[in-house]
């Protein structure tokens, strides 16, 4: 029972990180039909920012908002430089562009920073743990869960109460009609990228807190997972992305904890098979997007 609870905490922490990343992908996809595989590099940029802040002796508490802000700026620049010129192109063109951006950035990290993994100085408190009714919980896990909840609440308020947030939801559902209302394409798309950068930045802080290092390929794996989570939840659906992220986190953690040792090497395929089975029953994902039938930009 304790093991189950313990693993549930872990699942929430990992699932929350996936949820934030999947949300970042979904926010952009819902508005412009782009699956941004360079989302992972936003994480990496954020991770390097944390590393450099540490080297410069900037306190972690200050480094975190700086790292998030840098990811947001990088996301907006990415849109401006790479994605705006192909905005009205086919989904395939945009997808390939995002791969190109991803690879270019990875090469830049390799050439100008290092090909090797770099340590990130983290405050000691993150590796402490507390004992709660017989459970030993790492503070980094608690931080991940709290950060996820805070971000989800923030995003919910932004999307429901802010004019720009409502406009983004409207644009996600029917971009052309949103434009008829006077909603500018550039505004909502830049807004979507800024938001996705923020989510990638927070996710990066959480990711780096678990492993205290950063390397040029750091963002790749989590973004592939987030992509799976976004599909599982319903591509383009924000609530779906959150649901998919948590479900994927639970699947991974529970399989790692409860699969018999001789089957552990099949953990990933078993996990993905579960995803496939879910999709067989819900082909549009757990919570399909509202715009499923309307056209994209």
């Amino acid at each position: 029972m304790d093991l189950l609870l313990q693993q549930t905490v872990n699942a929430f922490a990992l699932g929350g990180t996936y949820a934030l990343l999947a949300l970042g992908l979904a926010v952009v996809f819902s508005i412009m039909g782009l699956i941004n595989f360079a989302h992972g590099e936003l994480m990496t940029i954020s991770g390097y920012t944390l590393m450099y802040c540490g080297i410069a002796g900037i306190s972690f508490l200050l480094a975190v908002p700086v790292a998030i802000a840098v990811a947001m700026i990088a996301a907006v620049l990415m849109e401006r430089i790479a994605f705006r010129p192909v905005r009205n192109s086919s989904a395939a063109t945009m997808l390939v562009t995002s791969f190109a951006v991803s690879m270019i950035l990875q090469v830049l990290f390799q050439n100008f920073i290092s090909t090797r993994s770099q340590p990130v100085i983290l405050p000691q408190v993150l590796s402490d743990s507390i004992t709660l009714g017989g459970l030993v919980i790492g503070l980094n896990k608690i931080a991940a869960i709290v950060a996820t909840v805070v971000m989800l609440v923030f995003l919910d308020i932004f999307m429901k109460r802010q004019k720009t947030g409502i406009a983004m939801r409207a644009a996600a559902e029917d971009f052309n009609v949103a434009r008829l209302m006077g909603i500018r394409a550039n505004t909502v798309i830049a807004g979507a990228f800024a938001l996705s950068g923020m989510l990638a930045g927070v996710a990066a802080v959480l990711w780096v807190s678990q492993r205290s290092s950063v390397d040029p390929h750091m963002g790749f794996l989590p973004v592939v997972k987030a992509f799976i989570a976004a599909i599982l939840g319903g591509l383009g659906s924000l609530r779906g992305a959150v649901a998919g992220g948590f479900l994927l986190g639970f699947i991974e953690i529970y399989l790692a904890a409860f699969l018999p040792p001789e089957m552990q090497e099949f953990r990933e395929p078993i996990g993905l098979s579960i995803v496939v089975v879910v999709l067989l029953f819900r082909p549009n994902g757990l919570i399909p997007a509202a715009s499923l039938k309307s056209e994209k930009v």
Binding site: I166, A170, E173, V177, L180, R184, A290
Partner: peptide, 30 residues
């Protein structure tokens, strides 16, 4: 399109195309 509504001309498109996942008030606010 985004310049025409402020200029005083707008279209209510075929098939209504309300934002189904937004509330009625949010549709109007948009």
């Amino acid at each position: 399109p985004e310049m025409l509504a402020p200029a005083g001309m707008t279209l209510s498109p075929e098939g209504r195309r309300v934002f189904g996942a937004l509330s009625v008030a949010e549709n109007l606010a948009m």
